[in-house]
């Protein structure tokens, strides 16, 4: 097993969804998509964002785009104009998931 950063095999984009954010993770190839699908469980993503996301994490697969979509509920400090946070729209959450470390088999 070895540790790699999500950002080494995927790119991302995020935005707001009410009081939560969406984080789209797009793998650079099919094999990376399979690795990400296996390792990026809602629990693992929730743990990575533990000081940001205070609600549940939902996961959706978009295999035709080699992409996974995560909804991070309650992650914006209220959302919209109710939030006091600098990133009230979750625009930086996509960059944050690229910093996440995942464990992969060496031969992967």
């Amino acid at each position: 097993m070895t540790k790699i950063k999500v950002g080494s095999i995927a790119h991302s984009r995020s935005g707001d969804k009410g009081a939560g954010s969406n984080v789209g993770v797009i793998a650079y190839d099919k094999k990376s998509y399979e690795i990400l699908d296996k390792t990026l469980t809602p629990e693992a993503v929730k743990k990575h964002f533990s000081k940001i996301c205070f609600g549940s994490v939902e996961k959706y697969c978009v295999p035709n785009l080699l992409a996974l979509n995560f909804i991070l509920n309650d992650s914006l400090g209220g959302g919209g104009s109710a939030s006091l946070k600098t990133d009230a729209q979750g625009k930086t959450h996509g960059q944050a998931i690229l910093l996440m470390e995942i464990e992969i088999e060496i031969d992967e």
Binding site: H11, S12, R13, S14, G15, D16, K17, N22, G24, I26, Y60, C61, V62, L65, L66, A67, N69, I71
Partner: peptide
């Protein structure tokens, strides 16, 4: 494909 994919995922909920 990469720039378009990123925007497709922007503010996405259930992709279905």
């Amino acid at each position: 494909i990469d720039t378009v994919s990123e925007q497709l995922l922007y503010e996405m909920g259930n992709p279905e």
